[in-house]
Design a protein around this nucleic acid. Structure first.
Length: 240
DNA sequence: GTCCTGTAGC
DNA sequence: GCTACTGGAC
């Protein structure tokens, strides 16, 4: 008599099987192509270079949520002039903070999250927690933000899986299992394999992000410019 | 009108 | 699962 497997577990298992069935050489080729392309053609932003505090990096990553990197690039310096650290954020007047956040969008939500987060960090001595569990418990920090902190602070080989990255991975490797990328076992298993084969976590993560933003966009794809098109099942080269 | 380096509430 | 959150860029 075969044991009954709960539906969500069997779906998880099949998704991971699908991700693990991809040839190692195929994943390695993807990683090599993206990393080589990133060194030549990747975007350059201040937060990708040394010199920013962990506070600034975390705020920038929060600002990048549902917001174009170019927009964050243009306005972030002005914001940090007024709010240079956790203390200034925690003490800020809510309306002033909202006004400073308007150029980025989502300003009421962000003002609230920034202040709750700042109070929490100031309350524990101005240091962010070390563990994944405690980081994820901070207000406003989901799986993406936790990984961003681990990557910037610890150089950890963890993925930055956003909507654009999911799009690139799905077009090249095949579709996800679930609607929400944060819970999808296929994309997470795939990312684990990609980060394992990468030499530098930030380069592969930013490389995929930049391909999603510049080449492999939602509605327009520039397959003729893409270093992945040769082996991409979604290749529209010649058609667009 | 659509999209953008997500998260939390339902 | 689905949706609100927001404004800038195209």
């Amino acid at each position: 008599m075969p044991q009954r497997i709960p539906k969500h577990l069997s779906r998880r298992h099949s998704a991971e099987t699908r991700a693990l069935a991809i040839e190692p050489a195929h994943v390695q080729w993807f990683v090599n192509q993206v990393e080589a392309w990133y060194k030549e053609q990747g975007r350059s932003f201040p937060w990708r270079k040394p010199g920013m505090s962990l506070y600034q990096l975390l705020i920038i990553e929060l600002l990048l949520q549902r917001t174009r990197a170019e927009t964050v690039n243009r306005f972030h310096a002005g914001f940090f002039l007024h709010y240079p650290d956790w203390n200034s954020l925690a003490r800020a007047n809510r309306m002033d903070l909202e006004a400073a956040l308007k150029p980025f969008g989502l300003y009421r939500r962000r003002a609230k999250v920034f202040q709750i987060l700042a109070s929490a960090v100031v309350g524990t001595g101005g240091e962010l927690p070390r563990s994944v569990e405690d980081l994820g418990a901070l207000p406003g920090l989901g799986p993406y933000m936790v990984n961003a902190v681990l990557m910037y602070r610890d150089g950890a080989p963890v993925p930055l899986l956003d909507g654009g990255v999911a799009r690139v991975l799905e077009r090249f490797f095949g579709p996800r299992e679930l609607v929400d990328i944060r819970d999808d076992p296929y994309l997470h298993c795939l990312e684990e394999r990609i980060l394992e084969l990468s030499k530098e976590p930030s380069e592969i993560n930013w490389g995929i992000i930049d391909i999603s933003a510049l080449i492999c966009m939602k509605n327009i794809t520039h397959c003729h410019l893409c270093v992945l098109s040769k082996k991409c099942p979604n290749n529209r080269y010649g058609l667009s």
